[in-house]
Design a protein around this nucleic acid. Structure first.
Lengths: 230, 230
DNA sequence: GTCTATACATAGATAGAC
DNA sequence: GTCTATCTATGTATAGAC
């Protein structure tokens, strides 16, 4: 059914190929407008959810007339899929830190820090992703069951190797990844709750640094690891 | 601004007070219909989000005509607030386990298990709550900044006491609660992702028991604790 | 207290001039 | 490639018969 967001369906081609029919002088208008629309859509979807988002609101935030949005993305649904595709591209990268020959504590700390950076710098992305999964993940089912599953299988095998060698505590490695995701993304997705409980209006860069240290320490200890106190 | 979902505004009174004007014979019709509507609404809000949910869909699932839903809740927004109020009542209870004189490992394990039970038995509740927070928590801001903050302040003081006595590792206790929430609720909110990565169609009761053991062990270890291997 | 029929607003999407 | 005007569908909410 859901054939994955990445796959280019017939309807996608129009908005994906680079050689637009009668492109603008420097050819930048199309690119620029697409970026504006995608960024605006990302924010509106994060704030309102898919159902609550309106093309009018997206157009307004993008600074374009509504019909212009429909020119680039014929349906709201197409636009949503484009936003998700944009997001998924950057979702898997941070796991590159985790390789068999790396030091467990250092590699995992690197991964967790990368995730926390993403949480800090692109909270909106995390929220759209979270919202999609909470409401059933109909659009990204393909991504989850193929790309993501494959990557987790691969990386949890790496961790299983470490465990077999006695380099970290015996944990269920797949669930260990869930724990990492849960904790790191919590600070993006549930930031309203975090701020309310901490009594803070806004979390600063410095806050995030402190939180990251705490998160890294907690998760590593959960895996029977610790960083050298440099 | 948001005066909290629990507070009874003028508009709420109609749907909250027990003595309905011309109640049914056994007085059960109103109660029954309210239950049906709230349960249906909970599910539809969880699946579609607030914006995506329609009163027609809620009425359909409740097995009532649309106008009947509007009879009990004059607006969709009122109904949403009622669903949230219903949820918040049961949100704080499990923390009762955590008291100064209890054993840290046992008390925290009890709390985590209670949260995992809630995750298993009422995933829909967790999803509505999560969705609300992700999209800014406008409706429950009051609850978060008063009731929840107060409770967390109180309970984190308990943990700080344990830490001072050397009964658990020195962690930032507020963030420690965030870690617990993040991990436990992950299995309700992100179940689509969990199932996809594990390659399972459905998580059974037995799965949840196993996951709970893993979660308890992980979090306790993160706090420098462990359960006696009974 | 229930429910059919309907009013009214707004959404997504498109036609067609520029 | 852009954008005003507009069509159509759908959603929320209500009037009023039962």
């Amino acid at each position: 059914m859901a054939q994955g967001v990445g796959g280019a369906s017939k309807k996608d081609q129009k908005s994906v190929r680079a050689d637009a029919p009668a492109a603008a002088p420097e050819g930048g208008i199309r690119r620029e407008n697409l970026r504006r629309i995608l960024t605006a859509a990302e924010q509106v979807f994060a704030e309102q959810g898919y159902g609550g988002a309106t093309t009018a609101a997206i157009a307004l935030r993008a600074g374009l007339p509504k019909a212009n949005v429909h020119y680039y993305f014929s349906t709201k649904h197409d636009l949503y899929r484009a936003v998700l595709a944009d997001i998924l591209k950057q979702w898997l990268d941070p796991l590159a830190h985790v390789t068999p020959d790396s030091d467990p504590a250092q590699a995992l700390a690197g991964y967790i820090r990368a995730k926390m950076r993403a949480t800090r710098d692109r909270p909106v992305v995390s929220k759209v992703f979270a919202s999609e999964i909470i409401h059933g993940a109909a659009e990204i089912e393909g991504f989850l069951t193929s790309d993501l599953k494959k990557l987790v299988d691969e990386k949890s095998a790496v961790l299983d190797g470490w465990i077999a060698e006695g380099r970290m505590a015996p944990v269920d490695t797949r669930h260990f990844f869930f724990f990492i995701w849960a904790v790191t993304q919590h600070y993006a997705d549930f930031d309203a709750q975090v701020r309310a409980v901490l009594g803070r209006k806004k979390l600063t860069r410095r806050d995030f640094d402190a939180i990251t240290v705490e998160v890294v320490r907690f998760i590593l200890r959960g895996a029977g690891l610790s960083l050298p106190t440099a």
